[in-house]
Write a protein that binds this DNA or RNA. Structure first.
Length: 277
DNA sequence: ACCCCGACCTGAGGGC
DNA sequence: TGCCCTCAGGTCGGGG
């Protein structure tokens, strides 16, 4: 479920309950998510000193120069609850602070919960080689144009590659390409500098709007259902196959690209040079 | 270097 | 009611 905006709003919602707080109790109920989970004793009693996001990872720095590295995978959620509420199936990691209980709930277990020395963070295999953050100046039109050189894969697949740019997932890839009026099947290397500029702009706009929408829905989670980062999205093309384009009423097309379902408007996002060899 | 594809998991929803 | 199939917002590693 989570893409970058969901991770970002999860992080913001989490901060008041976790930042500066001691982990008075830790319960690890699942020995292995995508990778083995650490023993509870290693982190019990530590205080969370910093909270940050890199790509779709949440990084929680602890006061003993170690860091918790958390990823929500496809189906992961963090919930904020009281200690009273019963544990649910798929609540894998339970962190208790004086303020709340934070639970990692992940039915498919594609998520991650690791504990590593902070000094090794930047060289960690999961983080090394990740591309620029999409919402920073490092992600710009000249960079994108350069990065796409020699790539014959569809632009949709290219922007979902975290080594090229961090955090653009399946939904926002389709949404950004629609806004930039670029056909998702366009070979990546064929994008003009102008199209690269448009794509950068619209990736940033799409992500920022989603973060703003999520941010505006942040409230006191201990009194709602406790779920962080989930809010009503209105997507322009994602999930709308066959429905009229909001701009021109042409039915939205869909096709699996790079093993993921992809949505676009054939009229607003025409494929240039459609002929094959 | 580039690109493709299977693998990792469970649950929801549709068709019969 | 139940079975069987497909699909799901992510990522990695192996092989061509």
């Amino acid at each position: 479920m989570p893409e970058l905006p969901e991770v970002e709003t999860t992080l913001r919602g989490l901060a008041p309950y976790l930042e500066g707080q001691p982990l008075t109790q830790v319960l690890i109920r699942t020995p292995k998510l995508r990778l083995p989970t650490p023993a509870a004793a290693l982190i019990t009693g530590r205080t969370v000193t910093t909270l940050a996001r890199r790509n779709k990872y949440i990084l929680a720095g602890l006061d003993d120069a170690s860091t918790l590295l958390l990823h929500l995978g496809m189906s992961g959620r963090l919930t904020i609850t009281t200690t009273q509420e019963p544990l649910l199936k798929h609540d894998h990691i339970i962190l208790t602070t004086p303020k709340a209980q934070i639970r990692l709930h992940d039915p498919r277990r594609f998520g991650l919960f690791l504990h590593i020395p902070t000094a090794t963070l930047t060289s960690h295999p999961l983080l090394v080689g990740i591309g620029p953050e999409p919402l920073t100046p490092a992600f710009n039109a000249p960079y994108l144009h350069r990065a796409l050189k020699g790539k014959s894969i569809p632009i949709k697949a290219a922007i979902m590659d975290g080594k090229l740019v961090a955090g653009v997932g399946n939904i926002y890839a389709s949404e950004s390409l629609f806004r930039a009026k670029i056909n998702p099947l366009t070979p990546a290397q064929n994008l003009s500098p102008t199209q690269c500029a448009a794509l950068v702009t619209h990736i940033q706009e799409t992500l920022n709007e989603a973060i703003a929408a999520g941010g505006s829905s942040l409230r006191d989670y201990t009194h709602s259902d406790g779920q962080l980062g989930y809010f009503q999205h209105s997507f322009r093309v994602y999930g709308r196959a066959g429905q009229p384009c909001l701009t021109c009423s042409t039915p939205i097309a869909s096709q699996v690209i790079a093993q993921r379902n992809t949505f676009w408007c054939p009229h607003c996002q025409p494929l240039k040079n459609p002929r094959r060899a």
